[in-house]
């Protein structure tokens, strides 16, 4: 899926299982938190969790702003 999208525009893959993301050919990869909640963490309070989520997306946005020549894990 991610590869077909990369053919037409930059896409960042926020994925928990980085080896799978690599295998399927994502070029910009940001490791996520856990399989059932890649962008959340139920063990912290909601405010901290939201910040965590924003930080991860910020990391993804920074990846989109970065020029790369090959598959890169940010």
């Amino acid at each position: 899926m991610v590869k077909e999208i990369e053919k037409v525009m930059p896409v960042v893959h926020l994925a928990t299982v980085v080896p799978i993301s690599k295998t399927v050919g994502a070029n910009r990869i940001v490791p996520a938190i856990a399989i059932p909640h890649p962008l959340g963490d139920p063990t912290v309070n909601l405010k901290a969790e939201k910040q965590l989520r924003k930080d991860l997306i910020e990391k993804g946005l920074a990846a989109l702003e970065t020029s790369i020549d090959e598959q890169t894990v940010f």
């Binding site: 525009m9 960042v12 893959h13 994925a15």
Partner: peptide
């Protein structure tokens, strides 16, 4: 992926975030 890419292109999207 192909179909989504087509939608995105038509809608003039700049970039995508995909979560897995």
């Amino acid at each position: 992926g192909k179909e989504i890419a087509m939608h995105l292109q038509k809608a003039g999207i700049t970039a995508a975030i995909m979560t897995s």
